[in-house]
Amino acid sequence: MTKESKNIAKIVNTPLGSLIHVGEKKVENIKITYTKYNNLELERKEINDLSKFINDTDDKVKWLDIIGIHDTNLVNKICQSLKVHPLVIEDILNTSQNPKMEDYDDYIFLVTKLMYFNEEEELETEQISFILFKDKLISFQELETELFDGILCRLKEGTNIRKNGADDLLYGLLDAIVDNYFLIVEDIGEKIDTIEDELLLNPKKEILQKIYILKRDLIYIRNSLWPMRNVISSLSKNDYDLIDGKTIYYLRDVYDHVIQMIDIIETYRDICSGMLDTYLSSIGNKTNEVMKVLTIFSTIFIPLTFLAGVYGMNFRYLPELNWKYGYFSFWIISIIIIILMLRFFRKKDWL
Rank of each mutant, 00 (worst) to 15 (best):
T2S: 14
K3T: 10
I8D: 08
K10D: 06
T14K: 15
L16K: 09
H21T: 14
K26G: 02
K26W: 07
V27M: 01
V27D: 01
K36T: 06
N38L: 11
N39R: 15
E46W: 08
I47T: 10
N48V: 08
D49E: 15
D49S: 13
F53N: 02
D59N: 15
K62P: 14
K62L: 15
L64E: 07
I67Q: 07
I67P: 03
V75F: 00
Q80T: 13
S81P: 06
K83W: 03
V88H: 03
V88C: 02
I89K: 03
E90Q: 15
I92M: 05
Q97S: 00
N98L: 14
N98G: 09
E102C: 09
E102A: 11
Y104T: 00
F109W: 05
T112G: 07
T112F: 10
L114W: 06
F130I: 11
I138H: 02
S139V: 00
Q141G: 08
T145P: 04
G158S: 12
R162A: 01
G165A: 12
G165L: 13
A166G: 11
L174R: 00
A176K: 11
D179P: 02
Y181T: 13
L183C: 02
N202C: 04
I207Q: 08
K210F: 13
I213A: 11
N223T: 06
S224A: 12
S233Y: 07
Y240D: 09
T247L: 01
I248S: 04
Y250M: 11
D256F: 10
V258R: 02
V258Y: 02
M261C: 00
I265M: 05
T267R: 00
G274R: 07
G274T: 04
G284N: 15
N285V: 07
V290G: 04
I300W: 01
P303I: 00
L304F: 03
L304E: 03
Y311E: 09
L318T: 06
N322V: 05
N322A: 13
Y327M: 10
S329M: 14
W331I: 10
S334K: 06
I335N: 05
L340Q: 06
F345N: 12
R346M: 09
D349F: 11
